[in-house]
Computed example of a mutant assay.
Amino acid sequence: MTNPITQLFKIKYPIIQGGMIWASGHTLASAVSNAGGLGLLGAGSMYPEVLRTHIKKCKQETTKPFGVNVPMLYPDLQQILDIIVAEKVKIVFTSAGNPKTYTAFLKSHGITVVHVVSSLKFALKAQEAGVDAVVAEGFEAGGHNGRDETTTMVLIPSVVNKLDIPVIAAGGIATGSQILAAMSLGAAGVQIGSRFVATEEASSHLAFKEQIVAAQEGSTQLTLKELAPVRLLKNKFFEAIQQAYANGATKEDLVQLLGRARAKKGMFLGDLEEGELEIGQVAGLIDDIIPVADLMKRLLSEFNQAKKRMGKLDFS
């Protein structure tokens, strides 16, 4: 397939792996890139020198394009960007911040820049800032999320209709038929997060992956909007959040409850009770843990099957 996204990133398929914290190390990113998509390293859970190591290892494991996802709300941001430039990474996805802050800096070093947005308002700001594409992410997505709870089905056509740059759909996408649906709404590609967490190559803990597979409809909920909206699997920690709200918790109370390294505890170390388990609503559709290569083949097969089914429809 050749379209604006495959041309922009020089990849075979317009499928981008989300740069999820505690899941997106060099093993996952290189596997996705080797399978024809675009792998992303998740800088949000890496100290600067750890990121440098993952970039170097990714270069050893793939000759295909890969990038780095950079949440702009974390410390050491300038140091992380300096490492990206020094290591000659060619693709950066930014999120959770103002795209005007670093887009010009990155592009001055020949880097393709994509910004993640949750609304048309921020998509227009990202285009104005000069990014090469946007990821429009519906509130079905896992991890940090938009406050307005706009669904992917609504968000994608809204953004596509107003932007002149390519739009990548994200949020609630885990199957080939969902990829086709997103592209039928005008997206030039998709970014998939949760489904890639449940692969053998993801660096997240096996217990967390198994919890994703066990998830059903209603197993996740968006919460902590006062801090940074995040979709979580319901566990003991999630119930503590709900109880705090019931008791009239302030923002400061929630910060104290969250503490430090809560996501690492759950997603990387496998504490399924006290950890923060960030995952998308689509976890209810995930029922196995498989290698990336097998997943990519499945997504392509499902896409083509869905496309064939749609070809039989006729509203004339």
Rank of each mutant, 00 (worst) to 15 (best):
V116H: 05
V135Q: 10
F122L: 11
V114R: 00
K121D: 12
M183A: 00
P99L: 06
Y102A: 00
Q178H: 14
T101N: 14
S95Q: 08
G193R: 01
F105C: 00
T152P: 04
A104S: 09
G138C: 11
H109V: 01
G189P: 12
T150L: 15
V213S: 08
L77M: 01
T150H: 08
G171R: 09
G97N: 13
S204P: 03
G97T: 10
S177P: 01
S194R: 04
K121P: 02
S203Q: 05
D82T: 05
T94M: 13
K107C: 10
K90P: 09
G138Q: 05
Q79V: 11
S158K: 15
Y102M: 01
Q211C: 12
L77S: 00
A170G: 13
V85E: 06
G110L: 06
F93I: 15
L206Q: 15
E149C: 13
E128V: 12
E87T: 10
M153N: 00
D148L: 14
H115Y: 12
A198T: 03
A104I: 03
L155R: 09
T112I: 15
V160I: 10
A198D: 03
I83V: 10
T94L: 04
R147H: 14
P157E: 01
G171Y: 13
A170P: 12
G171S: 11
F105I: 00
V167N: 07
S184L: 12
V116M: 11
V190L: 05
A96H: 03
H205N: 15
K162H: 14
I179E: 00
L163I: 09
